[in-house]
Design a protein around this nucleic acid. Structure first.
Length: 739
DNA sequence: CAGCTGTATCTTTTT
DNA sequence: GATACAGCTG
């Protein structure tokens, strides 16, 4: 035991040994967080405080879960198998699947992804006769999702009597949407979190079972948990409050999807007498990188505050490169890669290129292909989001859960079998009237008025085909079932004939890859003695994250968003697109909270780098049709100049232009940010109490002013959402209203 | 009435 | 620069 713990530093070791009661570990970037968590679990088992089956560990991605389990297996052997480890969503799905019978939920429920949910909402809106222009299904969906994450149920909201028409519609659609999901035996991502909370509240004996089961709970990336996840933990944690959370408020980057940074900031209040440990020694990055990152994040106000330090040497300076446009930027990235490879003997896999938006990958990909640089792209169009895969999965979802009408609609006329929209609508109406599912209605198509015998025949054929496979699903192995299905439904044939050779081959290859992954899944699950059914495969697939599908062992440069990079590290990191409007993103520049989140995102990116960090920006960038001229990101200006080396030009011209380029850039930023004198209407335009109007938030009233000129921060109370927002004058676009 | 073709609208990040 | 939807055609 001594020996085992000797691999930790003093704080880490204390965090591991403080097993009972609430524990908060503030773990800075690269401070050995995963190591600490892993050793904590191992320690709980080795010291006989808990059996592996009595421990629940929640990670942010499935990949992190898998890696942690591997490390634990190395420390403890096969006994770790019964340990519960996974993301919030997968753990919740597992609980719901287990308890389904007792809580009136179909055991074979389907999980709807965002796309499915938006489809459903679009339909509900059009049923109400509302135009998608006025009520954008995506926006309605995100509002509903937000409400769910806050654990606000439809009835509560309707009782509250929404203020404006839009909110009223959202509340109504929210309720209808929940009914729709229930009818379809479907849960969306948010339901996965909410339903267990309801179950625990309505079935105390079920809650008790889990409280007793999980003697110790550990949560990673606690700064990115939302309110629903918080409520869930509150219900799951036992009398002794054996809850250990690990997080870093400086790396909270999911506020936009409902993550509540207060969860970590207020942990002490929620769980009194929590032991707090701060891991501040960074084992990852060269000192220059760390100093730069610290200097940037220091500009944020909402943080607990910590100072990361390292014993490592300074290392090279941070390289900043200016490019003329995204093409030039991509070429410079290629230069960086070559340079790192030849002068520092790096291989492709040592290098990661990060960006704010997925769209930025295109220019990079083109250049990489031209220069024979192998790359792996994480995220973007995901494997399981490809059309051919989604179609095949939709078939499987219907087999497992015939009530799933969203999936059924997707496949009823794919491949084309002459059952068009009009016919489907008729069948849908019939199903509605008879109070049966869409699938059941297919079987009774002869009873539906206005459907010709010929059409009815096509419908019946499809119905019988699906029936046949439902029967087969018990008899065949999953892979056999799926491959037979792909052939007999004509999907394979469709992709063989409908596309050019290149596309056809790649789509068929993807389908084969799906077979292989089903096979792999089945074997893995059987080895663990867990559910290996088709339903469980579909669940796993629905809950995969971007990084989960990343093959990190292949020798290729990694391209991904800054969000996806969380938790990872690379010897060489290059962050691209460091321009105003892109990083920080245009719509996040005005709101101080959002600007701080963008800064944290940049901080996360910087701290991924172990040895070399490159930052690039383009003065001009194409964005769909037109080119836009951008200033360099304000975050660049927050890095202390002595840590920076500008590489504005290629090797030859560098020495001559270095000075001028850097000072020119500097002047530009100065002009952009700090020039307060040339304000045209500076002064008494805004005052406390002033009524103002904002494009998105509507009417509000100024309650506080700080600073002056462009940098002035204006706190406004917006009436509609009853919220206060701190905005930066320069970007906020606030117009004063007359009283 | 199914299926094809042209146009409008997006893209911030994701479980 | 793709995708979804409306409108047209056969």
């Amino acid at each position: 035991m001594e020996d085992f713990l000797s691999q930790l530093n003093e704080v880490q070791r204390k965090a591991v040994e403080t097993t009972d009661g609430p524990v908060l570990i503030i773990a800075g970037a690269g401070s050995g967080k995963t190591r600490t968590l892993t050793y904590r679990i191992a320690y709980l088992v080795k010291s006989k405080r808990a059996l592996p089956s009595q421990i629940l560990a929640v990670t942010f991605t499935n990949k992190a879960a898998r890696e942690m389990k591997e490390r634990l297996t190395a420390l403890l052997g096969d006994q770790v198998i019964p340990l519960w480890i996974g993301t919030f969503h997968s753990v919740c799905a597992r609980i719901l699947r287990t308890e389904a019978d007792k809580i009136g939920l179909s055991r074979s429920f389907t999980i709807y992804d965002t796309d499915d949910s938006v489809r459903a909402i679009r339909k509900l809106l059009s049923n109400k006769g509302l135009s998608p222009q006025k009520y954008n299904p995506k926006i309605v969906h995100s509002k509903i999702s937000r409400l769910k994450n806050q654990f606000r149920l439809p009835q509560d909201i309707l009782e509250d009597e929404p203020q404006d028409e839009y909110d009223q519609v959202v509340a109504e659609v929210y309720q209808e949407y929940q009914n729709f999901l229930r009818k379809n035996h479907a849960l969306d991502f948010d339901d996965l979190l909410i339903r267990p909370i309801e179950v625990f509240d309505n079935y105390p004996e079920i809650r008790k079972k889990y409280i007793q089961k999980f003697k110790y709970i550990l949560v990673d990336e606690y700064q990115d948990t939302n309110h629903a996840q918080y409520l869930l933990l509150k219900r799951l944690v036992n009398e002794q409050k054996n809850l250990c959370v690990v997080g870093d408020e400086d790396q909270s980057i999911y506020g936009w999807r409902g993550a509540d940074i207060k969860n970590i900031l207020n942990f002490n209040r929620d769980f009194p007498k929590a032991a707090v440990f701060k891991l501040e020694e960074n084992y990852r990055s060269h000192n220059n990188i760390l100093k730069a990152a610290n200097a940037v994040v220091k500009n944020n106000q909402s943080r607990l505050g910590k100072s990361l330090w390292t014993k490592k040497k300074d290392g090279p300076k941070i390289n900043i490169l200016m490019a003329s446009d995204e093409l030039d930027e991509a070429k410079k990235v290629v230069e960086i890669i070559h340079d790192e490879m030849y002068t520092h003997k790096r291989s492709f896999k040592d290098i990661a290129i990060l960006y704010r938006t997925n769209a930025q990958s295109r220019a990079l990909e083109d250049q990489f292909r031209k220069n024979a640089i192998s790359y792996n792209i994480v995220g973007g169009v995901k494997f399981y989001d490809r059309k051919e895969i989604k179609d095949l999965l939709a078939y499987l979802k219907v087999l497992v859960n015939p009530a799933d009408s969203v999936s059924l609609r997707r496949i009823i006329n794919f491949p084309l079998r002459g059952i068009g929209d009009t016919t489907v609508t008729k069948i849908e109406r019939f199903a509605e009237m008879e109070k049966i599912t869409l699938f059941e209605a297919l079987g009774q198509v002869e009873n539906i008025a206005n459907i010709s015998a010929a059409m009815g025949n096509r419908v019946i054929q499809f119905y019988e085909l699906m029936k046949k496979f439902m029967d087969l699903s018990d008899k065949l192995g999953t892979v056999e079932l799926v491959s037979t299905l792909a052939t007999e439904t004509g999907i394979i044939h469709h992709y063989q004939t409908e596309y050019d050779q290149y596309e056809s081959e790649s789509r068929i290859a993807n389908i084969r890859e799906l077979f292989a992954s089903i096979d792999h899944f089945t074997i893995e699950r059987e080895k663990e003695g867990r559910d290996s059914s088709l339903a469980s495969f579909l669940e796993e697939v629905s809950l995969l994250t971007d990084v989960d599908t990343w093959n990190s062992s292949s020798n290729a440069v990694t391209l991904m968003t800054l969000h996806a990079a969380k938790g990872l590290e690379f010897p060489v990191v290059c962050i691209t697109g460091l321009e105003m409007g892109l990083m920080p993103l245009q719509r996040s520049t005005a709101d101080l909270d959002e600007l701080e989140e963008e800064r944290r995102l940049f901080y996360v990116g910087m701290t991924r780098a172990m040895e070399s960090l490159y930052l690039t920006y383009a003065t001009k960038r194409r964005r769909y049709n037109s080119s836009i001229i951008n200033e360099p990101s304000l975050f660049l200006d927050e890095i202390p100049p002595e840590l920076i080396e500008y590489r504005a030009q290629t090797q030859k011209t560098r020495t001559s232009s270095k000075r001028s380029k850097s000072s020119a850039r500097r002047e530009k930023i100065e002009a952009y940010f700090h020039n307060e004198d040339d304000q045209t209407n500076q002064g008494d335009e805004f005052r406390v109490g002033q009524p103002v109007y904002h494009e998105t938030f509507g009417k509000g009233q100024i309650i506080q002013l700080e600073g002056h000129g462009d940098k002035m921060k204006i706190t406004v109370h917006f009436f509609k959402d009853k919220i206060n927002k701190k905005l930066i004058k320069k970007f906020a676009n606030l117009s004063p209203l007359e009283n």
